[in-house]
């Protein structure tokens, strides 16, 4: 029973990591339709931000709290730069975007390698996040609780921005019908940029959070990018709700499969489940209702 509960927690925790990684993608890929392969590298940039800040400030606690907003800004700034220089030229050419952003991802990895060196670096976790909280004999690692909480905060913040602010209204309007939104006086260029900024910024935040779990290296993003796309696709394009459900479900699936088999086999099983699921429901868990026949 206790193992079952701690497995449940491990699954939720993995789900929250996946969610953080996929949330930004749900905006840029899900809402805007941009296949951004450099999304993982924005996470890497966020992680290195945490590393640099820790080098400057020294104290792990303070630097974590500074790194989170700063990681958002760094990821967002990179996203803005990418959007302004490359992506906005190819909104109508999704396959080219895939290749171009993949190239950008490779460039960013090499930049990180040249600046920070090939060996991975370690970001120390603050003292108040080391160890575990014990609930009825169940040890819940504090870092994982923190990431879980961070994911919830990001989700709530994003939902608020999308639903309750003029910006969110503009984003949703452009997603639903670009031409009509423009005709109503919304600058779709400015909206695109802001959406991309927020989406990439969330990747930066995810990167900062990942430093609590493992080491920071130039290829940090590549291990998450495929999973992040899986979550967004399985969740249904264009729906944040679907992303949340899919991330949680995949996290739980992965950890329970892993518990009853092995890590490698679990990965295979998760892929099989997703492929089978997409056969039945190609539009994902939650889909936007449209009048188009496609």
């Amino acid at each position: 029973m206790e193992t079952l509960l701690s497995q449940l927690f491990a699954g939720l925790s993995l789900g929250s990591v996946l969610l953080l990684a996929a949330l930004g993608l749900a905006l840029t890929f899900g809402q805007m339709g941009v296949i951004n392969m450099a999304h993982g590298e924005f996470m890497m940039a966020g992680a290195y931000t945490a590393f640099v800040i820790q080098g400057l400030l020294g104290d792990p606690g303070a630097s974590l709290l500074v790194s989170l907003p700063l990681g958002f800004l760094v990821g967002g700034a990179l996203g803005l730069l990418l959007e302004a220089t490359l992506i906005h030229r190819m909104y109508r050419r999704p396959l080219d975007t895939l290749l171009v952003t993949w190239g950008v991802a490779l460039v960013l990895q090499q930049v990180a390698r040249d600046v920070f060196g090939a060996p991975n670096v370690d970001v120390a976790a603050p003292g108040w996040l080391s160890g575990a909280v014990t609930v009825g004999g169940l040890a819940l690692p504090k870092t994982r609780l923190f990431i879980l909480a961070l994911a919830v905060v990001c989700i709530v913040a994003l939902a608020l921005v999308l639903r309750a602010t003029p910006l969110g209204r503009r984003i949703r309007a452009v997603v639903q019908h670009r031409d009509l939104a423009e005709a109503s006086g919304i600058s779709s260029r400015a909206t695109d940029r802001l959406t991309f900024f927020i989406g990439s910024g969330l990747a930066g935040v995810a990167g900062v959070a990942l430093t609590l779990l493992g080491s920071v290296g130039p290829t940090l993003g590549t291990s998450y990018i495929v999973d992040a796309f899986l979550v967004v696709v399985a969740g249904g394009i264009g729906q944040i709700k679907g992303t949340v459900i899919a991330a949680t479900a995949l996290g739980l699936l992965q950890s329970f499969f892993e518990f009853s088999t092995t890590a490698s086999v679990a990965k295979v099983l998760v892929f099989v489940v997703i492929v089978a699921f997409l056969q039945v429901r190609p539009q994902g868990l939650v889909s936007v209702r449209t009048r188009s026949l496609a």
Binding site: S6, Q7, A10, A139, L210, L213, E258, F259, T262, A263
Partner: peptide, 18 residues
Amino acid sequence: EYAPLGHTDFSTIVNKVK
């Protein structure tokens, strides 16, 4: 227990160890 090279989520394996 075996983890794929580059695996970064060890909560399940550590649970089993524990």
